[in-house]
Computed example of a mutant assay.
Amino acid sequence: MTGVTSDITKRKNYETQKDDFLSIASHELKTPINSLKASIQLLESLKNKPTHEKIPKLIKQSSKSIEKLTFLVDDLLNLNPLSGGKMELVKTEFTVAAMLNSCCEAIRLSGSHHVTIKGDIDVSVVADEDSINQVVVNILNNAVKYASQSKEICLNIEKYDQYIKIAQDFVDGIDEEVQPYLFEIYFRANQEEKHYSGLGLGLYISAEIISRHGGEIGVTIKKGNGSTFWFTLPL
């Protein structure tokens, strides 16, 4: 009887998380859509004034809204094949450092953070480069979002006998009590204390991708000195 009660409780908790996710998803999708709509309406009103000073700002705001909307939709689209176990990996050989550099390009161009890549920069792996790229981008986005007071992003590549390890240090620490849930579907750290955008799918999707590659993903908490997100890929 105890086992049945436990299963029911877990199911109820899952349904609650799912309902919360749908509410969050609705809000998160509406925000960039409403912003984009407002920008386009203002641009429409200025169509006969092509040199108006507000136009560049409105175009920039529209671009940001589209970028955010694309990111959210991509997460939703990626969730379905992962949940159904239908994700297909197209593996090729690539240099890890080159892939990391590509992932960091947008952050470098924005000038918001200084990005460094160190360690075994010549190592190559055979993996699905696009999906590993997505994992790195998810981790970088978390670095920018949750450790906003730090302007340094450092990715470290370590080569071992049978696998490589890629790690990203966070200045902000992750609470130990939430550590076991970070890679669960619909979970968002700090969602009660701070208002962060996103659907809470990034780390779950990343964990599924790494698992399908035969690797591991995790976070190491350094008490009083931030946290390190890391993942491994077999050689």
Rank of each mutant, 00 (worst) to 15 (best):
I8R: 05
T9C: 01
K10E: 04
R11C: 09
R11M: 09
Y14R: 03
D19Y: 06
L22C: 03
S26D: 15
E28G: 01
T31W: 03
T31A: 05
P32L: 02
I33W: 06
L36S: 11
K37F: 07
A38D: 09
Q41R: 06
L42C: 04
S45Q: 14
K49I: 00
T51Q: 00
K57T: 12
L58G: 09
L58R: 00
L58C: 03
I59V: 12
Q61V: 02
K64R: 10
S65N: 09
F71P: 01
L72Y: 14
V73L: 12
N78P: 06
L79G: 08
S83L: 12
G84E: 07
T95C: 13
A98Y: 08
M99Y: 03
S102W: 05
E105S: 12
A106G: 08
I107N: 05
L109Q: 12
L109F: 06
S110V: 09
S112A: 15
H113F: 00
H113K: 10
I117A: 08
D120I: 04
D122R: 06
V123E: 03
D128H: 00
N133S: 14
V135I: 02
V137K: 10
N138Y: 03
L140S: 11
V144Q: 07
Y146I: 07
S150E: 06
E152L: 13
L155H: 08
N156G: 06
K159L: 09
K159Y: 00
V171E: 15
I174W: 01
D175Q: 13
E177D: 15
Q179G: 02
Y181N: 04
F187H: 12
F187D: 05
K194M: 11
G200W: 05
L201C: 10
L201V: 08
I205A: 04
I205H: 10
S206A: 15
E208D: 09
E208C: 04
R212Q: 15
R212Y: 03
G215T: 10
G215W: 00
E216P: 04
I217K: 03
I221Y: 12
I221D: 11
K223Y: 10
N225D: 08
T228E: 15
F229Q: 09
T232W: 11
P234H: 04
P234W: 06
